[in-house]
Computed example of a mutant assay.
Amino acid sequence: MSVVRTAVIGLGDFGSLHLDVLSSLPGVEVVALVSRSQARARELAAQYGVPHTFGDADEMLARVPVDSVHVVTEETRHLAPVLAALRAGVDVFLEKPMSHDLAEARLMAAEAERLGRKLMVGHILRFDARCAEVKARIASGEMGRVATVYGRRNMAKSMASQYSHSSRLYTTGIHDVDLVLWYFEGRRPVEVYMKTMAVFGQGDDVFWGLITMDDGSLGVIETSWVLPDATPFRRHILLEVLGTQGAALVEVPAHGLMLWTDQAVVGVDTGYWPRVHGATVGALRDEILYFVTCVQQNRPIEMPRPAEAVAALEVSQALVRSAQEGRPIRLD
């Protein structure tokens, strides 16, 4: 396949980033946009030269031939467009988390396998050069046997209102759940425990979770939405991996670009989706390019496999249940 004809379903902030990346990739033609807001769809279609806009994914799939779609809606609205695309013979890039509901995630993965279609879930940190380097060092044996993985992903408090359609753990903490499972590859999570707080009274906004693996090694998840809005980069991210022969530390924005002005100290994204020479690059571009290449060359999706994305959601959902019930949850 020389040219991949694709559509973007969902045109919020992240959907527009997908569109920007796809529009810059050679061998990709964005032929349709789908949004509940037709004004938004028409605006972006005019900006990027996309010929078709729709308010409904089913109508788009019936009227426009596409090879792939990018589903970038809220996780509570993933199931219908993903199943429709797969059943239309179309490969799917699905933003994480797969769903707010584990049964829906399992259904999507099973349907992709049954139909022989590609389904890639956007766990972007697997394409972050820092996190991927840690994985490479673990795989090489350089760090010995990994004993603990700690992931912190704390956000500015004003961002919480944007993410209230399901547990906020699915928005941020699931990134680190996926890293825990990836770094402990070959081991199985057997128990989880989580405590939460609702600091500002708008739903849970502090999450502390513990994941115990079958050999006793530990993963710790910390995520919150209570940082001051003046925090550089509006978030603080920390990854620490301790092994028997070494340790790894990733911190954002501490190792990135910081700008000092008379008004503020500003952290600038240089890793996830920065703009360089007018184009969106970084881990997001690398992730999307991987999917496009798999579609073009008919290669299987392995980063991550759908089953791995389901596993991350299974652990995350068990963490949420643990907090709700106030007890550790054993995993089958």
Rank of each mutant, 00 (worst) to 15 (best):
S2T: 15
V3H: 05
V3G: 01
A7I: 01
G10I: 04
F14G: 00
G15N: 06
G15C: 05
L19D: 00
G27N: 04
V30I: 05
L33P: 06
V34Y: 05
A45Q: 03
V50S: 03
D56L: 02
R63N: 12
V69G: 05
V71Q: 06
V72D: 12
E75N: 13
L79P: 01
A84W: 05
A84F: 11
A84I: 06
R87S: 08
G89A: 03
G89H: 08
V90T: 10
F93T: 09
F93P: 00
K96P: 04
K96D: 07
M98L: 15
H100T: 12
D101K: 11
R106M: 09
A109D: 08
E113G: 10
G116H: 04
K118P: 10
V121W: 02
H123D: 02
I124N: 11
L125P: 00
R126S: 01
A136N: 04
I138G: 02
V146K: 09
V146E: 10
T148K: 12
G151C: 08
R152D: 14
R153E: 15
N154A: 14
N154M: 11
A156Y: 02
K157Y: 12
M159F: 13
Q162W: 12
S164T: 15
S164D: 14
H165K: 13
H165Y: 15
R168P: 04
R168D: 06
L169D: 09
H175F: 12
D176I: 02
W182K: 03
G186Y: 04
R187N: 03
P189H: 10
P189N: 03
P189L: 02
E191I: 02
M197A: 15
M197C: 08
F200C: 02
F200W: 08
G203F: 02
T212A: 12
T212G: 05
M213S: 06
D214G: 04
D214H: 06
D215S: 03
I221M: 10
E222G: 11
T223N: 14
S224Y: 01
P228K: 03
A230T: 13
V241Q: 09
T244P: 04
Q245L: 14
A248K: 09
L249S: 11
E251W: 00
H255N: 14
H255S: 15
L259C: 07
W260F: 14
D262H: 12
V265C: 11
G267H: 00
V268K: 01
W273S: 15
W273M: 13
R275E: 01
H277M: 07
G278M: 00
V281W: 00
V295F: 04
Q296C: 03
M303Y: 12
A309H: 05
A311P: 04
A312N: 02
A318Y: 01
V320S: 10
E325S: 09
P328A: 09
L331I: 12
